[in-house]
Design a protein around this nucleic acid. Structure first.
Lengths: 193, 193, 193, 193
DNA sequence: AATGAATGAGAATTCATTCAT
DNA sequence: CATGAATGAATTCTCATTCAT
């Protein structure tokens, strides 16, 4: 309960005022918790941000895994769409916080994260995608590995562009379509190369 | 001279230790300049970062404009390749600084930048690309505007992925090819849609 | 306890070295308090001076009210003498501090005082005096209001002259007599006018 | 010319923003003079304030002396009225600056003033008044000396009250009358004592 | 477990003063 | 004589962290 209150208040301050305004005193005050209690659960504000990121990654991972499981047996394209859709929906819940934890303040408390170094959700599926590219598009292995990274970069950047920066006017289904067009357009042209 | 020293030392600290470690005292000391002199030229560390970004954008803009001028009269694809190549080369000079100024610390001192609000290089060519998409790929106007944003997002994110995060093992020409594949793959599939 | 130590040390520094030498660090050090604690209770040195003045006014008000209460039922002259005597005794306790808070640094932290704008003791009795002048000396109302201000100005300035500047060699009873002579001399001549 | 510009700008800053805001840089900038030049004429900002006061006292002294000379041969009351009137007019020219130099910042640069210790205009006439009181009101010498101080205190404090604090609504002749009533009321009642 | 007053290192910022030109 | 860039000591203020209760 205390921990949850601290995490929530940290997220709020981060979104409202940025990391510069994030002080241990401010976190505790906003959470209605004494500063002494904060230090009973967290060693520093960086540790709180790290825990926030860990939980966020956990949620996204769960969403992606669920999506993949439900798409099992379908074509690569359907599976990719499932992942993209799950990813977009994960972002849509709180795009700003997602962006802050994964881009803007991606290094904050990073060293404290080290227990689960590859917890970044997008990295978890690199191998699966790599294998699919080899199997379904006849990519060479090293090309496939690069291509998997490119695909995830596209997916993430387009999702951020739409949901965080609002630089594009697309509703959710249209955004998913747009991302799929970019991903598949790349993969097909790459295969034809 | 004093200003240059301050900007240089700011860039170094930013790259080595991040914005959190960027204190006015550290900047001045590293530059071999007294703290008083720093304040004679800049009102805050944010203002120094803003000036650094302003200069950086100025350089990139110059590179892109030169590239475009030299590609004048060539096909859309050739012009796009010229911009992508110029962009990659601009990043390659100091990918980390570029990334920090345009992504990680994109908001730092942003309000102080306000004199040239749309100085972000990638924004400068949105219109040109939009027009080309309408002309050469028969896009509808609103579709073309969205697509131009998507293309620039792809170009920037893939360039960052390769040069900043080193998540891909491609030399410069291969990277430019890869980006072009992604951009054209998207545009062609989008047009066919 | 901490607050009291800070107020005391502020008063000492003010008297010894003036407002220019009054730094937050000096206040805290002299009080044997850490600078951090100072800021837990006061937002600025001006706020400490304001609180000092507020407390001082509170004491003087209390003394004057007590004096007036005890003189209730007596003649106007006796009541005036009671106020003058109470005022002189209030000044005599620490004439320098009184002077500094009410004259020299009367504006320091004045805006922070705003909760009790009319807390200046001398102002509290203007109305009572005005009424007495109308009743006992047959003053017209607007003349009486001006005269009340004049009387208080005389009382304050003569008290300051004697106790702060030591420009006159009078013991306390003689000083009170002298002030009464000035006040009544003025009022009588004014009435005769 | 340079000196005059510096004195003027000092007076303006003092009136607008107080001594705290009075910095050598601010004085020089406002005067349109380089900071280096300021130091060629004055050793510190305190020295500038001291010179400002010295000149002010010089002017007031001149006005009072002229007034006295013109009243030569007239009665004591007429001579006193002449001094009071000259004093009021001297204050009226720039009451705020007068107040700042003689009350609020009376100690600023005071040590630098030491060349002419008794330059305070009101002090210059103490002896003359003392003698008159002995002669015309049959005061004992020590009583007369105290009374002279009291009279000057009354004159100054009432002038300040009216012109600086605006606590009284009197035009210039009425104010002079009021001050004369207070001064003569005191002297007569004192003599009768 | 929870509290929150106290701490003090450190960061931002100002400003009197110097000195080479 | 005038200039103004450079200096750095001094000041204000914040905030992570401790510890007695």
């Amino acid at each position: 309960m205390t921990v949850d209150a601290l995490l929530e208040s940290t997220a709020m301050i981060l979104k409202e005022s940025g990391f510069d305004a994030l002080s241990c005193n401010a976190i505790a005050e906003r959470a209605g918790i004494s500063i002494g209690s904060l230090y009973q659960y967290f060693a520093s504000k960086e540790a709180i941000v790290a825990e926030l990121r860990r939980r966020h990654f956990h949620e996204v991972n769960h969403a992606l895994q669920t999506a993949l499981r439900e798409a099992r047996g379908q074509s690569f394209v359907e599976q990719l769409r499932a992942v993209v859709a799950a990813n977009v929906r994960s972002h849509a819940a709180d795009p700003e916080l997602h962006y802050l934890l994964t881009e803007r303040y991606r290094d904050v408390g990073f060293d404290l994260d080290a227990v689960e170094p590859k917890s970044d959700p997008t990295l978890l599926y690199s191998d699966a995608v790599t294998e699919s590219l080899i199997r379904e598009y006849s990519y060479a292995r090293d090309t496939a590995e690069n291509a998997a990274v490119v695909v995830f970069t596209l997916v993430e950047s387009l999702t951020h562009m739409a949901l965080v920066y609002n630089q594009v006017t697309l509703d959710e289904p249209a955004l998913i379509d747009e991302i799929m067009i970019a991903a598949l357009g790349y993969l097909e042209k790459r295969a034809a190369h």
